[in-house]
């Protein structure tokens, strides 16, 4: 299945990027049917990440999915815009590695994935408050787990 066919079926518009990877924006409701279709060609989910456009855009978050097709030798980037508190469907039952990648996005940005089997922090410790890669998280605010002998910053 070619990209043109996908574009037609889901009425997507290709966005030109500097790296030349085909990039599409997708509504969060339409993500799951699109990804189910793409799964047959794109065997590998390379990465899930997010961007916080706090104060710059109405919907502050953008979740980015990067796919790789070994059979067609192409990569694909899908972006989903999300507002504060909005959820997006999990892909953990399509690609197994989405489980941990989504946990990382949840850990760093606080974006929740609907239907995720085990959505909890993966890198930071459980008692950590907030999500450090959000733009409204103070840049140098640390949350020590033990009593420190001195203050960290003057």
């Amino acid at each position: 299945m070619g990209l043109e066919e996908i574009e037609r079926e889901f009425s997507l518009e290709r966005i030109e990027t500097a790296d030349g990877i085909p990039t599409y924006y997708c509504e969060k409701e339409g993500l799951l049917p699109l990804m189910e279709k793409l799964k047959s060609d794109f065997e590998i989910l390379l990465d899930i990440t997010a961007v916080d456009y706090f104060g710059k855009r109405e919907k502050r978050f953008e979740v980015v999915y990067l796919l790789l097709s070994l059979s067609q030798k192409i990569r694909l980037r899908i972006k989903v815009r999300l507002g504060e508190g909005e959820k997006v469907s999990t892909l953990s039952f399509l690609w197994k590695n989405a489980n941990w990648l989504e946990r990382e996005v949840y850990d760093m940005f606080g974006i929740e994935f609907e239907g995720h089997p085990d959505l909890r922090r993966i890198l930071l410790y459980p008692e950590f408050k907030g999500h450090p890669l959000r733009k409204d998280y103070p840049l140098k605010k640390s949350q020590p787990r033990i009593k420190l002998l001195r203050s960290e910053r003057e």
């Binding site: 450090p132 140098k140 640390s142 949350q143 020590p144 420190l148 001195r150 960290e152």
Partner: peptide, 19 residues
């Protein structure tokens, strides 16, 4: 001192934890 990692994650010098 924590080096280039002046952020939420890194301890800013281990003498904050142990002598």
């Amino acid at each position: 001192t924590g080096g280039i990692y002046d952020n939420y994650a890194a301890v800013q010098g281990i003498d904050a934890i142990i002598p």
